[in-house]
């Protein structure tokens, strides 16, 4: 399996996710500069976390106009899986590959902590090694992770079962108290219609090694490798 990690000026989780991918795949990921026109042939595109272009204007807005994004959109539309983590999720919404938008956290604070997530589906390439309803612990680190979509879009996401993960308490209950940033319906991550694009605010690559205190994130990478190898 081959994976490509897109590197923007201001990305800061690109190497972390490359380490997680290497650990799961057994080979190096291609690091692709945002100014390139084309991504080498790949089975997976990763848009990493960070602060692309300093989050100027809006998170992900500048990066969505980067030269490489044309090829990301073309490949995504032709079915190449795309994983957007944190800034990568913001970027996917700005590029129109996923619906909705991210607002400033409801409490206005930058949040950096472990949160519990409920796995809403385990029938996708990203989630097959999880069990549906699993409660996993993954860190968040963002200022603008308050997922917003209009009522119609939210209803579509719910009706079509496109919610990937929701913020929950340690027992798996979806409550307001367990919602760290004010996201609509406690949404932490969503899929596109075909389940080939996943955007999520939490950072699976930050809990993908026992030395980091947990491996709940590693399961996502092993799921991908098993499907895409």
């Amino acid at each position: 399996m081959k994976a490509a990690v897109i590197v923007f000026p201001g990305s800061n989780c690109d190497r972390d996710v490359a380490v997680s991918l290497k650990d799961a795949m057994g080979c190096d990921a291609d690091m692709v500069w945002h100014g390139d026109a084309e991504i080498p042939k790949t089975d997976l595109i990763v848009l990493p976390g960070g602060f692309s272009y300093g989050d100027y204007l809006r998170c992900g807005a500048m990066a969505a106009q980067s030269p490489i994004m044309k090829d990301v959109v073309t490949k995504a539309n032709s079915g190449v899986p795309v994983l957007g983590i944190c800034n990568g999720f913001q970027l996917l919404t700005e590029a129109g590959l996923l619906p909705g938008a991210m607002l400033r956290n409801a409490n206005l604070k930058y949040l950096c902590k472990d949160v519990h997530l409920r796995v809403e589906r385990n029938d996708t390439i990203f989630s097959r090694h999880y069990t549906q309803g699993d409660v996993i612990k993954i860190p968040i680190a963002h200022h603008d992770g308050n997922f917003f979509a209009d009522a119609k879009t939210l209803a579509q996401l719910e009706d079509r079962n496109l919610i990937a993960f929701r913020y929950c308490d340690s027992g798996g209950k979806i409550t307001d108290e367990a919602n760290p940033n004010g996201s609509a319906n406690n949404i932490a991550g969503i899929y596109n219609e075909n389940g080939t694009i996943l955007g999520l605010m939490p950072h699976p690559e930050r809990l993908a090694d026992i030395q980091l205190g947990g491996v709940d994130g590693k399961t996502m990478f092993s799921s991908l490798v098993e499907t895409l190898h």
């Binding site: 204007l57 809006r58 807005a61 106009q65 919404t93 700005e94 619906p99 909705g100 938008a101 607002l103 917003f148 979509a149 209009d150």
Partner: peptide
């Protein structure tokens, strides 16, 4: 194209 995000 850039200055506004028409979703919000």
């Amino acid at each position: 194209k850039l200055l506004a995000n028409m979703v919000i």
